[in-house]
Design a protein around this nucleic acid. Structure first.
Length: 370
DNA sequence: CGGTTTTGACCTGCGC
DNA sequence: GCGCAGGTCAAAACCG
């Protein structure tokens, strides 16, 4: 009651703004530099001491190279961590080729997105919460039930006046307990895009459901939900406070439906990539002499998005072609596809070095038009 | 008029 | 336990 009303839009105090003291608990692993990559958002701060992330910026090993994904040079465990939140559930089984993560350059973004407690350094906690068996199907469903219970609980205000009652307290407790044991976030993927437009077209339809000021940033963060029924995908969009030209888009969850734009017959950016083109991508051969060269406009686009870092490594550049819806959609689809791929591997218990590229290529070729 | 955006209130989790 | 920050809800406003 006595709580002062605070406008979420006025929380930023320009005089208090210190770019070096950012709380990036939400995106602790973002690279704010010019080399954009797909990031898997870890839910645990990498290292409490390096909260401010600068370590990450200068450490290329945190970047998930696209080629790593494509050619499977990233070991299974790493991929699990990098792509799936639920890795903390049962599939940790996979015998880790241990400690690759120490210094191998394939380390990618190793932090588990899955353990969702941003500040729980001990991911095993979430492990145990998963074992209730819900581990496999909790994607989405939980969120639903979560919401429902929330709504039931507080039909909004008033309540307390007419019945400051105990039953409310009780139900509160029950709900709390419930929530504690099952709160699982979807995997998150983020990319940076250089753009003046905040909300980039990615082929899907979104409804904005919230906007909040971000601490230490002059730019608000917007929350969107996919408008397709029963699709629980969300995305957050915010502008980098360090480089205001960069938009940070974070996807959470996976669409359970086709991209509306694809259905409408516009670009099927990923679906039309030729297998041979992808092979070239994986071997890092773009732009070099004898490799497969792009045959379609979207492949050309991708060659520009994928820039060789060193020998066998490519990074997905998110900041080119920001003005191009196809580009955004490409990202979205790529990430979706990569993620799906990895999940399939998990389901099938495929060995860690299974060649993802082949999977990708074949799935693409199925989609390819006659 | 239906869908989307805005925005204040509320909930939740975490650190102190 | 309290305060803060992030995330979500939902009524009202807006728009095509």
């Amino acid at each position: 009651m006595s709580k002062e009303k605070k406008s979420p839009y006025l929380q930023y105090d320009p005089f208090d703004y210190n770019p070096h003291e950012i709380d990036r608990s939400s995106f602790p692993f973002f690279n704010y530099g010019s080399n954009s990559s797909i990031y898997n958002i870890p839910q645990t701060p990498a290292d409490p001491q390096t909260q401010n992330l600068h370590g990450f910026e200068s450490d290329p090993s945190y970047l998930m190279s696209f080629a790593d994904c494509l050619n499977g040079s990233v070991d299974y465990t790493t991929l699990s961590k990098a792509f799936d939140i639920s890795c903390s559930s049962s599939e940790v089984i996979s015998p880790p080729l241990l400690d690759q993560d120490d210094n191998s350059n394939t380390k990618a973004v190793a932090a588990g997105v899955g353990d969702q407690n941003p500040s729980t350094p001990n991911s095993s906690l979430s492990c145990s919460s998963n074992e209730a068996g819900a581990a496999n199907h909790e994607h989405g469903n939980d969120q639903d039930s979560d919401k429902i219970s929330k709504k039931d609980k507080h039909p909004k205000v008033v309540q307390s006046e007419e019945a400051p009652g105990d039953h409310e307290d009780k139900s509160k407790k029950v709900n709390k307990a419930k929530k504690k044991e099952k709160r699982q976030r979807e995997p998150r993927f983020a990319f940076l895009t250089k753009s003046e437009i905040d909300h980039l077209e990615d082929g899907y339809r979104w409804r904005k459901y919230g906007q909040k000021a971000v601490k230490n940033s002059p730019y608000p963060r917007s929350y969107y939900r996919c408008t397709t029924q029963k699709c629980l995908v969300k995305k957050r969009v915010e502008r980098s406070f360090q480089d205001p030209t960069i938009v940070i888009t974070t996807y959470e969850g996976q669409h359970n439906h086709q991209c509306p734009a694809t259905l409408r017959g516009s670009i099927n950016a990923v679906g039309m990539l030729s297998p041979s083109f992808l092979a070239s991508a994986a071997s890092g051969g773009f732009g070099t002499s004898n490799n497969e060269s792009p045959r379609f406009p979207h492949e050309l686009l991708l060659t520009q998005l994928l820039t060789p870092v060193n020998n066998n490594q490519l990074q997905l550049q998110a900041h080119h072609h920001h003005h191009d819806p196809a580009s955004s959609m490409l990202y979205s689809n790529l990430m979706n596809t990569l993620h799906q791929n990895q999940q399939q591997q998990q389901q099938l218990h495929v060995p860690h070095d299974y060649n993802m590229l082949q999977n990708l290529a074949s799935s693409f070729s199925h989609k390819e038009k006659p």
